[in-house]
Design a protein around this nucleic acid. Structure first.
Length: 115
DNA sequence: GATATGACGTCAT
DNA sequence: CATGACGCCATAT
């Protein structure tokens, strides 16, 4: 099988697909998106994809702790868009326990019984 | 192959 | 809580 002439980096497609799954009014962190895409510890790349791929709900991706990583005008823009979706801010951050989207198939630190 | 880059994450101060 | 330093890792050059 010959690969198509323009083979896109797999990470970009995977990450973009994951981000598109975030429903309106919910959010996800860079790290969580990276892991759900199959690239744990690649949070930095998520941001790159957000910038490169247009049409993504970029405002729904936050930094660890529910903080906005963007600064300046874009930071305000993100906050504005999120509040328009019904996401409430708690100071400078968002309550992830209420708004973070859980990706299907991605097992986080759930209480798997005790250890 | 080596270096630089980045909308990150975590820990130390 | 603010800041700095370091770790991480696929892409671009």
């Amino acid at each position: 099988m010959k690969r198509p002439p323009t083979s896109k980096p797999p990470i970009a497609a995977a990450v973009a697909a994951v981000i598109r799954q975030i429903p309106r009014g919910r959010v996800a962190t860079y790290g969580a998106v990276a892991e759900a895409a199959g690239y744990p510890r690649c949070a930095r790349h998520v941001s790159k994809v957000l910038k490169q791929v247009p049409g993504l709900p970029w405002q729904r991706v936050l930094g660890a702790g529910g903080r906005i990583s963007l600064s300046g005008e874009y930071g305000f823009e993100q906050r504005f868009l999120l509040e328009a979706e019904g996401v409430r801010f708690k100071g400078r951050r968002i309550d992830l326990t209420k708004y973070e989207h859980h990706f299907p198939g991605t097992r986080r630190n759930v209480f798997s019984g005790r250890r």
